[in-house]
């Protein structure tokens, strides 16, 4: 059938057999997953009661995944306190990491060889050792430095004395360890962003009389952000989960809190699930934030910014609506002819 007088072209759509099969397989897999997640199993106990003089007994069943326990602990103050600590650690360690990373990236690109090789060595060291080992190191640092002083080396000149044991609380040791480690990864991300900015932008800035600092701050960094933001979003999400290592140096973040609870009641699996669900929730929130941040820093780079998910949903719904509406005039026409 061909188009009738300016109306929509009517065609028989191509059948995508492969897609249908793949879809069916996926539905079965998802159904299996839901089934096992919601399955109930006997917990080994029996419960008996007497009805009308007749005594009946049956096995007690529980959720296989103990959802009742999962959700019982979900909002207890211990878990929520841990969650707060997780979020705090993530945010603060990322702030340290980003500031340090940009500084190191700028140093790395400096024409001064001493600066650039210092920056290179930093990245080499902190990327080359496991973050878990670094955390243990900062946690135990008071073993080799009872106190620290800041001054000139070899000259016995000190400006500042610090009591190491008091300074390196578990939380601070975790924060320093995670932050310094993140700085090494962020410096590579920041460096790729700085390199991606066109040389001509720097020339234009200098020709206006901007200093090197102004050029970096006002022209290069804002444009580098477009390249830096997406991988930084991944770093934040990755950091959120890496903070769980802090539980190994007795920081009671969300995993630590879950561990403390299951150490007492032996409900290991439900509490691990409780912690996992919280990680998933925060990751989801962070991903949404990342989308809007990317959109903000992409301004000027694209002629039209990408639509927000809400705008896209609205558009899709309108599309579905129009699909249902369009055939109608064609049908009435067929009746009339």
């Amino acid at each position: 059938m061909t188009s009738d007088g300016g109306g929509a072209v009517k065609v028989v759509p191509v059948r995508h057999v492969g897609r249908w099969i793949a879809g069916a397989v996926m539905i079965v897999v998802v159904a299996m997953l839901v089934h096992t997640l919601l399955s109930k199993v006997p917990n080994g106990q029996t419960s008996c009661h007497t009805v009308n003089g007749l005594r009946t007994c049956h096995n007690v069943v529980n959720w296989r995944f103990s959802w009742n326990i999962v959700f019982h602990y979900f909002t207890t103050s211990e878990i929520l306190h841990g969650l707060l600590l997780t979020v705090e650690l993530t945010i603060l360690a990322m702030i340290i990491g980003i500031v340090l990373g940009i500084t190191i990236a700028v140093m790395r690109l400096s024409p001064n060889r001493l600066l650039s090789s210092t920056a290179w060595s930093y990245t080499w060291f902190f990327r080359g050792t496991p973050v878990y080992v670094q955390l243990l190191f900062w946690f135990n640092i008071s073993a080799i430095y009872q106190s620290m002083s800041i001054g000139l080396p070899f000259l016995n000149v000190a400006f500042l004395h610090i009591n190491t044991v008091a300074l390196f609380t578990p939380f601070r040791a975790a924060l320093i360890g995670l932050g310094l480690n993140e700085g090494a990864y962020m410096s590579e991300i920041a460096r790729s962003g700085l390199i991606a900015v066109d040389e001509g932008q720097i020339e234009a800035a200098s020709s206006l009389g901007m200093t090197r600092g102004q050029t970096l701050r006002l022209v290069v960094l804002p444009q580098a952000m477009r390249v830096i933001i997406p991988p930084t979003g991944n770093e934040v999400i990755s950091m959120l989960k890496t903070t769980s290592l802090a539980s190994a140096i007795s920081v009671v973040e969300v995993l630590g809190a879950a561990q403390n609870i299951y150490a007492a009641n032996y409900e290991v699996m439900p509490l691990l699930i409780t912690a996992s669900i919280w990680y998933l929730i925060i990751t989801t929130v962070l991903s949404i934030g990342q989308f809007y941040l990317e959109r903000h820093f992409a301004r000027g780079a694209q002629r039209t910014p990408p639509p927000t998910p809400i705008a896209r949903l609205r558009h899709d719904l309108k599309g579905i609506g129009s699909k249902f509406r369009t055939p109608r005039p064609a049908m009435t026409r067929e009746v009339s002819t």
């Binding site: 001509g200 932008q201 234009a204 800035a205 020709s207 804002p222 444009q223 477009r226 000027g300």
Partner: peptide, 18 residues
């Protein structure tokens, strides 16, 4: 300061994209 008193226009415009 000297540069700021001399205007320069480039082949590829080099406007600040952001």
């Amino acid at each position: 300061v000297e540069r700021s008193r001399i205007g320069m226009v480039f082949q590829r415009f080099n406007l600040f994209q952001h």
